[in-house]
Design a protein around this nucleic acid. Structure first.
Lengths: 261, 261
DNA sequence: CGCAGCTTTGACGCAGATCAATTCAAGTGG
DNA sequence: CCACTTGAATTGATCTGCGTCAAAGCTGCG
């Protein structure tokens, strides 16, 4: 049985035996975070990067007026704050949505990963796919009406879950509350509820106590103008730029582990 | 006089003389794209990466129902499609908003840039800052009311323009149409117009024929809950992770120039 | 002078917000 | 096994920010 990190990264790059072993090592040691808790502890000064290997987490921002906007969901196989690591900042606004298993990856270890050509490329790509998802969310929130907006989000999640074996096109595990959904899509809770009811009545999907069921995925995709391209799910194969992004280069971007200060 | 690319990258990393010369070389040859035209030509199969050195461009998506959503603005010093390059995809949905000067950077050249430790890091960071901006846009569109939403966007643009010397906190050059604004912020054109009028009446800013004037930046920032942190403007200095992201590593991510196929 | 693109106005309607309960599901402790 | 609590889903009523439609000014330009 493969670990979710391997499953995920395999989407972006072909992995060797050594790479896989490395990833298995990474995933070996994890801690549990209860639903509702912060993934990045409030007290300590967190180093390195956090990785979700079980459960759901989200990144969010709360405005001074109290409104919360969820900006991303992290599911098994997703890094929480790789971008923050590279930028040299910290982001503590990451909360477990369900009970999570998270791995703390030390800066040294991340550096080691990044120094492997294939893994380094996979990480970079992971982060760019995240970026692509953010773009699509902007389109979703900015340009779609409530029902299509929800439908689109559901389509995205089901495909992402599928990669790591947590769902297929008929449904899966989605521990997201209506209130979370509202804060994700820029809708009010009440309106989210009514839209969900209507989508349900239309026979498009049901979301009940963490269980997502999709009678007809194609129709769901259709009404939301869902185009999976932005998820870049089939990259390891159609890698046209491969030639430019592979081995034997004189310089490099990442570097050997050196403790800070 | 520094070129905008250098100005931009200097924000993220300290540059050596050799790096600067390299960047000057890159910027030496450019072509003009008329307002309204696509930056990535429709006919050819574009390779490499495009860089804006003068004028404004935007990335957008048009839904089947005709709605257009602008997802990002590219101003002098910004790469248009670095992410697409790394992902091995193409994005043609990039349009010049005003007349632009754009540089076509060949794949080989990009690879060379990326192979320099400092520049490679700067590029990665550029892309992560873009990601950070996308997150903030989600918050903006999802959680702020029309006027604050517009105000926040203005704050962001003025700071970005400031970096490359196209504005200061009292105003600058912003060739964006009300219709563009509407498609950027998920508002209707009419409502955008009325909100702009009200913001003007409140003495917050005026936007007239590409000229942006801001009598009181602080108040503008205040009403939109603007927090510049997400732009990561002062990174070259407070670089805590520097140690992990510098030189002399055995492996690498990017690679020597090798023509495709 | 007369398009053509942008801004502005007016009138009207609705999607979605807000407020305020109520119901339901699933623990939890006695 | 049942009161009691708590968080989530649901419902009803009301209101409004923002969208839509349609037309009229502006302004720069060929």
């Amino acid at each position: 049985m493969q670990n979710p990190l391997t499953k995920r990264l395999e989407r972006y790059v072909a992995l060797g035996k050594f790479d896989r072993r490395m990833l298995d090592d990474i995933v070996a040691e994890s801690r549990e975070v209860a639903a509702g808790e912060h993934v990045v502890g409030d007290g300590d000064d967190p180093q390195g990067v956090r990785l979700i290997i079980d459960g759901f987490a989200c990144r969010y921002k709360t405005l001074p007026d109290g409104k919360r906007q969820i900006v991303a969901y992290m599911i098994p196989g997703d890094f929480c704050d790789l971008y923050a690591f590279v930028l040299g900042k910290r982001n503590r606004n990451i909360a477990a949505i369900s009970t999570c298993r998270v791995v703390d990856i030390s800066p040294e270890r991340i550096a080691t990963l990044m120094s492997r050509p294939s893994l380094g490329r996979a990480l970079w790509r992971t982060s760019l796919v995240d970026e692509s998802i953010l773009s699509e969310w902007i389109v979703n929130i900015g340009a779609r009406a409530a029902e299509a907006r929800i439908a689109h989000f559901i389509c995205e999640m089901i495909l992402r879950l599928q990669i790591v074996g947590l769902a297929d096109l008929t449904g899966g595990y989605l521990p997201i509350t209506q209130s979370d959904l509202a804060d994700t899509l820029g809708l009010s809770l009440v309106h989210t509820n009514r839209s969900l009811q209507h989508l349900r009545a239309r026979g498009l999907f049901t979301l009940n106590r963490s269980r997502l069921d999709i009678p007809d995925f194609d129709r769901l995709a259709e009404i939301s103008f869902f185009d999976r391209a932005y998820l870049h799910l089939d990259m390891a194969t159609d890698d046209t730029q491969q030639a430019y992004l592979s081995n034997d280069v004189p310089g490099e971007i990442m570097s050997s582990p050196k403790p800070p200060v």
